[in-house]
Design a binder for these strands. Structure first.
Length: 258
DNA sequence: ATGACTGGAGTTTCCAGA
């Protein structure tokens, strides 16, 4: 079973790259973030044998699940914990696929540090754990994939001294992210590569950051223990980030034993 | 040339992204 998560930074601009990724990798589940549209077409994916599930707003946010299997149930926003948060409805989309639960997540950026929006981001991460507690147990087969906008450890940014305290790499965000994991999730990349340095998923469009590998690891596949035991391989798709007119994020691709 | 941000909304500029 192959699962890919990718912040595409606009569905419309990245459409052909998305179709290429599907053709080349044939994922069982493709999780998209920042579709930045309220309408996501279905026919190109139907033709390739995929179902499309999308929750998005005009010009901003937007999460999708493109799946070979049909969802038996969908989870949108924080409805499971009784929250009527309109933003969350464009940032959280989950589906039940047999015994698997797959989520596409787009955590708010939260800039600037210390602003109301920053605290909204922190709360958002705590609420994700609350949602898991309400719906599941850590023995369930769960994938939380997406752009979490948090680099969890010093190895996950190109310069931890320079970036300490900045957005996506400060104590409050790392603490919230760790608390989410402590419910019973494993950071799939670190399951396979616990100490590997220089693995990033986002590079600024400016300053030739990708060429110099000045990036951060913000996109994650968080999985429960039974899935971590089935993790075969995981990689960041640098080729897609290197294409002309790329997203600023690279896809993260994981393969599990069936 | 040792280098230059992108996308969306909606208008010719601003804002968010991270």
């Amino acid at each position: 079973m192959k699962v890919i998560t990718w912040n595409v930074n606009s569905y419309n601009i990245r459409k052909s790259q998305i179709l290429t990724l599907i053709s080349e990798k044939s994922p069982d589940f493709l999780l998209l973030q920042e579709t930045k549209t309220d309408k996501l077409e279905e026919s190109p994916y139907r033709n390739l044998g995929y179902k499309v599930y999308h929750a998005g707003g005009k010009g901003r946010n937007g999460v999708a699940i493109i799946s070979k299997r049909e969802a038996e149930k969908l989870f949108i926003g924080f409805e499971a914990i009784g929250e009527e948060d309109p933003q969350a409805k464009e940032r959280i989309l989950g589906g039940k696929f047999g015994e698997l639960y797959i989520f596409s997540i787009y955590v708010p950026n939260g800039s600037p540090v210390g602003s109301d929006y920053f605290f909204y981001k922190i709360q958002f991460i705590y609420k994700l754990r609350e949602m898991l507690e309400k719906l599941f147990t850590p023995e369930d087969l769960i994938v939380l994939g997406g752009d979490f906008n948090v680099a969890p450890e010093p190895e996950d940014v190109y310069d931890p001294i320079l970036l300490e305290g900045q957005i996506c790499f400060n104590e409050r965000e790392r603490k919230a992210f760790k608390y989410l994991l402590e419910w019973g999730l494993y950071d799939a990349l670190r399951v396979k590569y616990p100490n590997k340095k220089g693995v990033f998923t986002w590079w600024d469009y400016q300053f030739s950051a990708f060429k110099k590998n000045l990036g951060m690891r913000l996109d994650h596949l968080l999985i429960t223990k039974p899935l971590s035991e089935r993790l075969r391989e995981i990689e960041v798709d640098l080729k897609t980030r290197g294409l002309p007119k790329p997203s600023d994020h690279a896809p993260v691709i994981a393969d599990f034993l069936d």
